[in-house]
Design a protein around this nucleic acid. Sequence first.
DNA 1: AGATGTATTGACTTTAACGTAAAAAGACGA
DNA 2: TCGTCTTTTTACGTTAAAGTCAATACATCT
Lengths: 133, 133
Amino acid sequence: MQRYFTITQLTQEFDITTRTLRFYEAQGLVTPQRRGRQRLYTPGDRTRIKLILRGKRLGFSLAEINEMIGMYGSAPGEIGQLRLLMDKIQARRDELLEKQRDIELTLLELDEVETGAKSRMVELVASGVSESV
Amino acid sequence: MQRYFTITQLTQEFDITTRTLRFYEAQGLVTPQRRGRQRLYTPGDRTRIKLILRGKRLGFSLAEINEMIGMYGSAPGEIGQLRLLMDKIQARRDELLEKQRDIELTLLELDEVETGAKSRMVELVASGVSESV
DNA sequence: AGATGTATTGACTTTAACGTAAAAAGACGA
DNA sequence: TCGTCTTTTTACGTTAAAGTCAATACATCT
């Protein structure tokens, strides 16, 4: 018993437009089945869409995302190909680790700005500005 | 004694083009001084550029980056403005935390793929394919 | 059958973030 | 002073990732 999703269900769930999903399909990122002309998305398709959106949030291009998703089901039968795959994995991992460091730094800086803003606020309130916090 | 950087020094250090730096300037992201027509970047400008590139790596748009950088030197004198600033900070923080989770998940998936690839490799080698590892 | 609402397709447009090319202006060494 | 090099400015081109619009098709309700 396969459960299907319609395109609008998915657009609502992920807060994207139909145009977006059709565009992803045109790019070969998802290939939903058809009932007549209507698109039917399987749970697998839905998962792929989730992966795409996650990749987007991390700043990857659709081409990169396509490549990454391509890694999942593959497991090629040739040693050379396997080596290539593992190289790609390592490259992605390095990128992600860099992003992690970038995030840490940015979070720290946000903390600093917030600290400054807070103390500035205390100053203002103490200096007699009537304001209910 | 102010030390200045030329545009090409910075392009080499950060591996970007002059076009990129001039574009950032046109967008108001950096405003180097001039000696005649030549651009002179201060250490502060250099830091801003680093922040811009970091933001880009995290998938933020130049407009978002501009806003974030704008938070740094500000500390506005009005309570309402301070509240707004703190709201923005929190929003950014939430985004960054989401990106962190996204990265964790992606790293885990990469691990899985790699594990699969490794065992597949062992299989291949064991099944008699001559290959020096 | 007619009206209404949702899907699809195709074409054209838009936006961000640069790339590329051409012309002119200094800067510098021989 | 000449030639070379770098830098600047201006203008047009490009790419990715959709947005927008119009025409058509399907399905459903009345």
